[in-house]
């Protein structure tokens, strides 16, 4: 697995440099030119970078490289494990780097009120990025680059649709039920919300991993 990690790190180093610079520049422009807060920098950089890690599968696919990789001392299971581990490490690195940048921006503006709130609030971005990766990886393993692009759009669209429907249905609830829910959210507090994000991310990761393992086992090269 170490060899595969090195391979993906080299691919990222060769192909991700421009993306990294672009992300920082775009995040900076967005922050200074619009009224988004510093958390946008963290969210934007972490999530886009995380999605890029899933595209290392495209590089494996280029020139039928997949086929050759599977002849190396690498099992299909290890290949899947490596993709998830690599994505997780990439998310953590992107989050740390973007946190440093965003914190500098926050400090220079004198907007940082509470470290706990600042770090805790941004921690949920890791979970969101992980959910994105969890959706992308099995789709990317199942379909080729072209089909996966459409599959990703459909999957993301479905997630947004579900969120929208849940939100709209929430509005239909009686006022009493809504206020009870609001009270419950208040009660569990920031830590509780973070925990919910964490549970959702872990569940998404487990389901996604099992799907990827299944897809890879049955894959014909």
């Amino acid at each position: 697995m170490k060899g595969l990690m090195i391979k993906d790190a080299k691919l990222l180093k060769n192909q991700g440099k421009i993306l990294a610079v672009m992300l920082v520049v775009v995040a900076g422009i967005m922050y200074f030119a619009t009224d988004v807060n510093a958390s946008f920098i963290v969210g934007y950089i972490t999530i886009i970078f995380a999605m890029f890690t899933a595209t290392t599968i495209s590089y494996d696919e280029f020139d039928n490289c997949y086929l050759f990789l599977m002849t190396l001392p690498v099992t299909r299971k290890k290949y899947v494990n490596e993709k998830y581990l690599f994505a997780l490490i990439s998310i953590l690195i992107a989050w740390c780097v973007s946190m440093v940048l965003a914190t500098v921006v926050e400090l220079s503006g004198g907007d940082l009120l509470s470290w706990g709130e600042w770090i805790g609030g941004n921690l949920c971005i890791i979970f969101i990025a992980w959910v994105f990766v969890s959706v992308m990886l099995p789709l990317r393993l199942k379909f080729n680059a072209e089909k996966a692009r459409y599959a990703n759009l459909i999957a993301m669209g479905c997630i947004l649709a579900v969120v929208y429907i849940v939100y709209q249905m929430g509005k239909l609830l009686p006022a009493e039920a809504r206020s009870r829910m609001a009270a419950y959210i208040n009660e569990i507090g920031d830590t509780g919300i973070l925990l919910v994000f964490g549970v959702v991310a872990v569940a998404a990761g487990v389901i996604s991993y099992l799907c990827s393992r299944h897809i890879m086992t049955r894959k014909e090269f």
Partner: peptide, 21 residues
Amino acid sequence: ESGFSGYLKVKDVVPVMDAIY
């Protein structure tokens, strides 16, 4: 019709081979 990814250089392949074999 298959080999190392075209987006790698041979100098990138060396540490990969080193780790794999």
